[in-house]
């Protein structure tokens, strides 16, 4: 349904052109749930906003939505797809809500705009959505303005708003940011509830990715380094960076990989971008590995075959 072929996004800056997304290819099937895991600076938010034509960067490669090319689509055409077919949950809970509109009205608005619902119907659906996301006395909260809500509540309001009109694809940017464990589980449950809606979610929350994803891709320094079915991935990731992520979980004693992820400015070099932090690096790593196919999985590592 959504197909990305070698999508790169670049921006001109004072220090030269930067390319936070580098030749990303992936597919989301109808009703499928794909989670992109990456740290801050891995390019995941730029990728999502680029799919909506909102990043402002220069896009090369192809973005197919139901066999129609989105890259380079005029804004008037994009506007018909955005919100109606493809919904988006932005990251910033406080900055993404209208401070002058009551919560219930804001959540119901997509139903009015895209589905022709009456104001009353939209409000009733909004109250129901709040109830499902574990708001105590949802009728009360529906009548409040955003400033009355905590950060976690605002985040859940964005989730309600993004899922209420039941579009065909939902793009979600860090939907669990700032939420505690119980709240994250509610968001995960909400995402699993819509069998007709496909999901492409970017997050750095591994536990959430495990709860929601059917397929997982890991993004490092703008490139996908591994794509795999979720169960196989969490069972045994193949890329050394993905392995280091899993080792950072509590059950593995919070182990931390050497060093820190690079920033957009110095992705450069011809070799593997993870090589200098990699415990398994060898002679081959001076040359950038392509995504290699291993059954259902793709891994960007020369040595992945040996670690299977």
């Amino acid at each position: 349904m959504l197909k990305l072929e070698s999508v790169s996004v670049s921006f001109p800056t004072a220090g030269g052109v930067i390319q936070p997304v580098d030749k990303v290819s992936l597919e989301v099937e109808k009703g499928g749930r794909h989670v992109l895991i990456g740290e801050t600076g891995s390019g995941k938010s730029v990728l999502l906003t680029s799919l909506l034509g909102l990043s402002g960067g220069e896009i090369t490669g192809h973005i197919f939505w139901k066999n129609r090319e989105l890259a380079g689509l005029p804004e008037t055409e994009y506007a018909k797809i955005r919100g109606r077919e493809i919904a988006y949950i932005p990251q910033n809970g406080a900055g993404s809500l209208n401070p002058l509109m009551k919560i219930g009205r804001q959540i119901g608005e997509p139903l009015q705009v895209h589905r022709g619902a009456s104001r009353k119907e939209a409000l009733a659906a909004a109250v129901e959505a709040l109830r499902e996301l574990d708001f105590q006395s949802p009728e009360y909260w529906a009548r409040q303005y955003p400033h009355r809500l905590s950060g976690g509540m605002r985040q859940r309001v964005l989730v309600a708003m993004g899922t209420i009109a039941g579009g065909e694809l939902l793009l979600a940017d860090e939907p669990t940011k700032g939420l505690d464990t119980d709240r994250r589980e509610e968001v995960a449950r909400r995402f699993r509830q819509f069998p007709g809606t496909a999901l492409l979610c970017v997050t750095h929350d591994l536990e959430f990715a495990r709860a929601v994803g059917e397929r997982i891709s890991v993004l490092y320094a703008g490139q996908i380094v591994e794509t795999a079915p979720a169960a196989a991935f969490f069972d045994a990731p193949l890329h050394p960076y993905a392995k280091s992520m899993i080792r950072s979980l509590p059950e593995h004693g919070f182990q931390s990989a050497k060093g820190f992820a690079p920033s957009h400015r110095d992705y450069g070099g011809l070799g593997c971008r993870f090589a200098e932090r990699c415990p398994e690096a060898g002679d081959a790593c001076g040359k950038s590995p392509p995504l290699l196919q291993f059954g259902e999985r793709q891994v960007r590592c020369w040595y992945a075959a040996g670690s299977e």
Binding site: E39, H204, D205, S248, F254, S256, A257
Partner: peptide, 14 residues
């Protein structure tokens, strides 16, 4: 570390 993702949490503890 309670507000951090798994990778950042491990880095801070290290």
């Amino acid at each position: 570390v309670s507000m951090l993702d798994a990778v950042s949490r491990a880095q801070v503890l290290q």
